[in-house]
């Protein structure tokens, strides 16, 4: 009967991982990734590996979102400014 729990957790992980791939915007992807971390925590716990579950949780719940969002912010700012600079150059040229 314990297999039912493992099967449910596996299905949840598979569904969440698929959703993480299907969502395209990196910031929104980070959100699905957090939920994927949570479902993985459940999977590891029902597989009786709480040490691994804790590792996943410690890294996945706050650290990974922070790293991803900070990188997204830096990258976006850079590309926004490039667009702005190109536009200005174009306007100046015409």
């Amino acid at each position: 009967m314990a297999d039912v729990l493992i099967a449910l957790a596996l299905l949840l992980v598979a569904a969440t991982a698929t959703a993480a791939v299907a969502v395209r915007d990196p910031a929104r992807q980070a959100l699905v990734l957090s939920v994927l971390g949570l479902t993985l925590t459940l999977l590891f716990t029902v597989l009786q590996a709480p040490d691994v579950a804790l590792s996943q949780l410690a890294v996945g719940s706050a650290l990974t979102p922070l790293l991803i969002l900070l990188s997204v912010r830096k990258a976006r700012r850079r590309s926004l400014d490039q667009v702005r600079a190109e536009k200005e150059a174009e306007e100046g040229g015409t």
């Binding site: 980070a30 949570l38 709480p50 804790l54 706050a62 969002l69």
Partner: peptide
Amino acid sequence: DVALVVALLGPVGTLVYARLL
């Protein structure tokens, strides 16, 4: 203990999103 860590760090994750998004 695993549940304790979720209870502590879960909201921190949400605060990260609220702050940066």
